[in-house]
């Protein structure tokens, strides 16, 4: 395989942009979004890596991605619940 694989660039780019967002965003939801961007980049990379087997995709990275997605979503959901709670607490404080 020669030349540049565009989706590899996309994977790396997602990770870079995710980090960029994490550095510069202040709001927690935005940071969560950035983290998920980074995570999506990682997953994309893993799927690209899985294609290296001669016959059919490598199931191991695929399994990793699947596990990773569930973990990322669970953690993000928890994070969002925290954000809601934070907003509520602040709201309570203000009143």
């Amino acid at each position: 395989m020669t030349g540049i694989e565009p989706l590899a660039v996309a994977a790396a780019g997602l990770m870079g942009i995710g980090l960029y967002g994490f550095c510069l965003c202040r709001h927690a939801v935005r940071r969560l979004l950035s983290i998920n961007l980074f995570g999506n980049g990682v997953f994309l990379a893993l799927i690209l890596i899985a294609r290296r087997l001669p016959d059919g995709p490598d199931p191991v990275p695929h399994a990793m991605v699947l596990t990773g997605i569930v973990i990322a979503v669970s953690a993000t959901a928890f994070g969002l619940a925290l954000v809601r709670r934070q907003a509520r607490t602040r709201g309570d404080d203000e009143t």
Partner: peptide
């Protein structure tokens, strides 16, 4: 981030 992304791209192309 750009440098990192470029490096990652290169790394993803290494077989």
């Amino acid at each position: 981030c750009t440098v990192l992304a470029v490096l990652l791209t290169v790394a993803l192309h290494q077989h």
